[in-house]
Simulated assay, not measured.
Amino acid sequence: MKTAERELRTRVQELCAGWDYTPACDSWMSGYDPAFSKELSRRGLLAVTWPEELGGHGGTNLDRLAVTEELLRAGAPVAAHWIGERQIGPSLIRHGGPELQREFCPSLARAECSFALGMSEPESGSDLASVRTTARRDSSGWRLNGRKVWTSGAHVATHLYVLARSSKEDDKHDGLTEFIVDLSSPGVTVTPIVGMDGEHHFNEVLLDDVAVPERWVIGTVGDGWRQIVNQLSFERGGPERFLSMYPLLAAISESGVLDEHGRIALAALAARLAVLRRWARDTARAMDAGDSPVVAAASSKYAGHRFERDVVAFARPWVPHCDENVRALYRQAVFAAPKSGIRGGAAPVMLSIIAKGSR
Rank of each mutant, 00 (worst) to 15 (best):
W142M: 09
N61V: 08
E69S: 02
M119W: 14
Q101H: 04
R110Q: 08
R102V: 05
G118I: 01
I83H: 14
S114L: 09
C105L: 02
T158E: 13
R102E: 10
G97Y: 02
L144E: 06
T60S: 00
R86M: 14
R136E: 11
F115N: 02
T134W: 03
R137W: 07
S130Y: 13
H159Y: 08
R147Q: 15
A76G: 00
T151Q: 06
S139H: 12
L117D: 08
M119P: 12
C105A: 02
L117W: 12
T158Y: 12
R136T: 11
L65H: 05
T133N: 09
R102K: 10
A116F: 09
V149Q: 14
L62N: 03
D127Q: 15
R137S: 12
G96I: 01
K148G: 01
D127L: 15
L62A: 07
G125N: 02
P90M: 05
H81M: 15
S114Y: 08
L117F: 11
L92D: 04
N145S: 15
L128C: 11
H95G: 09
H159M: 06
T134L: 07
A74E: 07
P77K: 04
I83E: 14
P98H: 04
M119Y: 14
A74K: 06
L62G: 03
Q87D: 15
D127T: 15
W142E: 07
A111L: 08
E112Y: 05
R110W: 04
R132L: 13
G96T: 02
L160S: 10
T68K: 10
W82G: 10
G75Y: 00
G146L: 06
D127H: 14
S130A: 15
R94D: 11
E99H: 12
D127G: 13
R73D: 09
N145A: 14
L72A: 02
L160P: 09
G75S: 00
G89R: 10
A157M: 01
P122K: 00
